[in-house]
């Protein structure tokens, strides 16, 4: 009975996810380049050769470190902004709160490509509003300053965009979480003479912890997979690839360098890493008593 309802979904997932994953692993075991794609050269089975090549490549480790660092900054920023705004939303009146939600949802709904373009134009060296304002308030060196040229300013700019489009989710979720805390609990603590900070730290924070964990891990997963923003804003990974993250690296190897085998092996490695994070996530969900 249940199977009839599930059959289409299972069919789609098996055909459109299961089979490509099988193909991905298969490709990663071969020397698979442009010639093999067009059928001009025989397939050459490498076994784990691509993985060996990848793990002994210094660039891979640099990119991995950049991915982790970049994701960490984005996650921290997203959580900080999201949490602060969730608290803010509980403290203001209905009208400013609605305004807050509308602004946040606007940022959240902006397509990643458009959002990336928007931020690029905002920080553009020649006509960007930011440089205009900065040089207007006396920082004349900022006129014509290129934010995308330097490795760190470029990463910082992308991070600001990523935080911009991901804080609304954290904010909305935590706001709902704070609202779900029974008012009596807080009132009882206040009657007992607890200060606002004390209430926040000893009453609200512990009650929100499971939810905070959920949004943290979701943000980690999401920021680890960033592709569009880096690809669009740093023009495919920055000058000489110094703004690459794993996903963009895998894409560049497969599509720009036509190293499909190597690209696939990066894909497998990324998948395994994300799988590990997801397993932790599922454990957390289970422990916090979420009914799946």
């Amino acid at each position: 009975m249940a199977f009839a309802y599930l059959a289409p979904t299972l069919l789609v997932l098996a055909g459109l996810l299961g089979y490509p994953i099988y193909q991905l692993v298969l490709i990663s075991l071969y020397d698979y380049n442009q010639e093999q794609v067009s059928g001009n050269a025989p397939l050459n089975f490498l076994g784990l050769g691509n993985y060996q090549k990848l793990l002994s490549d210094k660039q891979f480790w640099t990119v991995l470190a950049q991915t982790v660092g970049f994701a960490a900054v984005c996650v921290a920023g997203t959580l900080l902004v999201g949490t602060a705004l969730a608290v803010l939303a509980t403290r203001v009146r209905a009208v400013p709160r609605t305004l807050l939600f509308l602004a946040a949802l606007g940022a959240w709904a902006t397509p990643a490509v458009a959002g990336s373009t928007i931020w690029l134009f905002l920080f553009d060296a020649n006509f960007g509003l930011v440089n205009e304002v900065l040089s207007g308030i006396g920082l004349h060196g900022m006129a014509g300053f290129s934010w995308t040229y330097g490795q760190w300013t470029a990463f910082g700019l992308v991070a600001a965009q990523v935080i911009w489009c991901s804080f609304p989710f954290v904010m909305v979720t935590l706001y709902a979480g704070i609202r779900a805390i029974p008012g009596e609990v807080v009132e009882a603590a206040a009657l007992d003479g607890a200060s606002t900070t004390r209430i926040a730290r000893s009453v609200i924070l512990p009650l929100l912890r499971p939810l905070l964990l959920v949004v943290t891990i979701q943000s980690i997963i999401w920021d680890f997979k960033i592709f569009t923003q880096i690809y669009v804003m740093t023009n495919g990974g920055g000058i000489a690839g110094r703004n690459l993250v794993l996903n963009v690296y895998a894409y560049q190897q497969a599509f720009a360098a036509s190293e499909y085998g190597l690209g696939a092996s990066i894909g497998v490695v990324t998948t395994v890493l994300l799988l590990a994070i997801t397993v932790v996530y599922l454990r957390v969900l289970k422990r916090s008593g979420e009914v799946l």
Partner: peptide
């Protein structure tokens, strides 16, 4: 949930 977490980039080459 695993599918939702899956890095889409990995599927691009096989697809």
């Amino acid at each position: 949930l695993l599918v939702a977490m899956f890095p889409q980039v990995s599927l691009v080459s096989p697809l």
